[in-house]
Design a protein around this nucleic acid. Sequence first.
DNA 1: CATGCAGTTCAAGGCGACTTGAACTATATG
DNA 2: CATATAGTTCAAGTCGCCTTGAACTGCATG
Lengths: 186, 186
Amino acid sequence: MKGYLWTRAQAPQREPSHSDWEAIAIDAVGNTIEFWGFKRNQGRVWALLYLRDVVLTAAEIEKELDLSKGGVSMLLRDLERWGVVLRVRSPHDSAWRYKAETDLLKMARRVIEEREFSFIARVRADLEEAIRLAEADPRTAKAKVARLRKMEVLAEATEKALRLFLKTSRLDVGSLFGVFKPDEGR
Amino acid sequence: MKGYLWTRAQAPQREPSHSDWEAIAIDAVGNTIEFWGFKRNQGRVWALLYLRDVVLTAAEIEKELDLSKGGVSMLLRDLERWGVVLRVRSPHDSAWRYKAETDLLKMARRVIEEREFSFIARVRADLEEAIRLAEADPRTAKAKVARLRKMEVLAEATEKALRLFLKTSRLDVGSLFGVFKPDEGR
DNA sequence: CATGCAGTTCAAGGCGACTTGAACTATATG
DNA sequence: CATATAGTTCAAGTCGCCTTGAACTGCATG
């Protein structure tokens, strides 16, 4: 299947340095965020920064997660654009360093809103179009139009479910909102 | 991105016979169901059968949707297994014929339940493992364990949202339940 | 039981998304 | 300003899912 809600990839390989459980946790976040429609490695980069709770250069991230230079550049650009990673430059430092912002679900919500709603909207528009065309043709059996209408209900239900899903995630994050905010170890 | 929540494919080509709007509607259902994590063509086959409201042979489906013989066989097997398409054999008929069952969302729910929950469960298990390992090592900073715990909340939130999403879809289908059930044109 | 058609299986091919790596640009430093 | 290092871009490569099509099985009919 192509359009799986999510793909389960499991990277068995781990970075050599640092503890074993760190890699496990990083991969877990990668899998979770892939679930939400992002790249696995976007989640891994965020998780690395969040877990270490330090600023890292692109080169360090590249090494820790075993990614390519170009890849890290693109991953960081996306994460920065979504506001979940911050780029900072200390004085007398020739390289940018990156740190994790805290609200990761914000990113999921935004993309779902922008991307998926418009997608479903177009599907619904297509069905409207089909109904219009069907009704315009006098040869069309009434039962057929009825069935088209029922198909549209399917799309409507999808949209509605998605909306509620989003709202819930917002609520959940609300209740968890402090969770990724300041923590005692800063 | 690979793990898109869903993929937007748009098939511009339409089958030659039958009305134009039929193809539009069929594709719309295909897109919607792909959204739910199925193959686009599974949705198209179901939609064809549902919209026409007749029994069709595999060969007819193959021709109408411009699919391969082997592909239709596999698609129908899946749909049948999920209980959204019925296989019937009339007396004195050498070929099976297929008709649409009505509850398409049943299929979505089942797969999400079977596939996605277990996936998230494993992600959470991984995080538990990471926390266990981290706590076992006395060198681990307390703040780090705290951050791991927060990551786990992310997975929990995901699972919770998914569960509520499912429940809602069930409710929605409940309220729409009659929708794909008997219709006046049978 | 020979023949033909319906249906199944699966290796190979197609296709799209993600990643890589090298060329390129930008920036800091002496 | 020359050089080196950081960062970006993008064509080509890799990978994995989906589809195809041909070989195969099963079944019915003459």
